[in-house]
């Protein structure tokens, strides 16, 4: 029996308007990602990578077609419902980390847990666990301004997984890092996929980053034109 995909896009249409001009991004995009997959999405600027990621994150919605993640039809949900869905089902890693500067590492990681009915002790315990997982034990009290880019990105990853979401979205997670830090971050992502079975969708320009994924999809002019599977 074939397992139902974790993420399904069917006939997704999406475009933007600038003044009187309509700019189509996707006209009929189809995509299926099974649970536990690690997909890299590559493509030139303007190919629709970020739009796709925004839709998968529930930040943006398709103009037409269906978008299903797990049991949720994101295209049929309102803003409040999608906000709640994000809090409980998805983690996101940004290119520029996007940590809050007035919070230390532990507080930044704890942020998504404030949306869950957890005691302060449970929150602390989860924060300590994920910071340990990304190799930042002992740096809980450090503020973002005191950390390197690689360390900040690891805090960003810890923040994305602290709620234990099934889906992890990564927007150019190595785009602002040197090679060594980038490799460390990719290693953590691969680990999360392998051991915790997180489904990861990563948008990247970096071919080396894409090699960490199980498969790579190439997007061009709103269509997937090529698929490569890791050896």
């Amino acid at each position: 029996m074939t397992q139902e995909p974790f993420i399904t896009l069917a006939g997704v249409r999406k475009g933007y308007r600038t003044g009187s001009d309509a700019i189509p991004i996707f006209t009929a995009l189809d995509l299926a990602i099974p649970r536990g997959d690690f997909v890299a999405i590559m493509g030139p600027s303007g190919s629709g990578k970020s739009t796709l990621l925004n839709m998968l994150a529930g930040i943006d919605v398709p103009d037409a077609g269906s978008l299903k993640v797990g049991n949720y039809r994101l295209d049929q949900m309102g803003e409040t419902a999608r906000s709640s869905w994000r809090a409980h089902n998805m983690g996101i890693v940004f290119q520029f980390y996007n940590l809050l500067p007035m919070l230390n590492a532990a507080e930044n990681v704890e942020l998504p847990l404030l949306l869950k009915p957890l005691s302060a002790g449970e929150r602390r315990s989860r924060v300590a666990k994920v910071l340990d997982l990304v190799g930042l034990s002992g740096r809980e009290k450090q503020y973002p301004s005191m950390m390197s880019g690689g360390q900040q990105q690891r805090v960003g990853i810890a923040r994305a997984i602290v709620s234990d979401p099934k889906l992890l979205l990564c927007d150019e997670p190595t785009g602002d890092l040197d090679r060594k830090s980038a490799d460390e971050v990719l290693e953590i992502l691969a680990l999360l996929n392998r051991t915790l079975e997180k489904t990861i969708v990563m948008v990247t320009h970096d071919p080396q980053a894409a090699r960490s994924a199980k498969r790579t999809l190439h997007l061009d002019k709103g269509l997937f034109v090529e698929e490569k599977r890791a050896a």
């Binding site: 994150a57 869905w85 996007n98 809050l100």
Partner: peptide, 16 residues
């Protein structure tokens, strides 16, 4: 504004 966008992405609702 940017940080508020980040909070919303993390699932913080408009009411919060």
């Amino acid at each position: 504004t940017f940080e508020i966008g980040v909070l919303k992405t993390l699932g913080v609702s408009g009411g919060r």
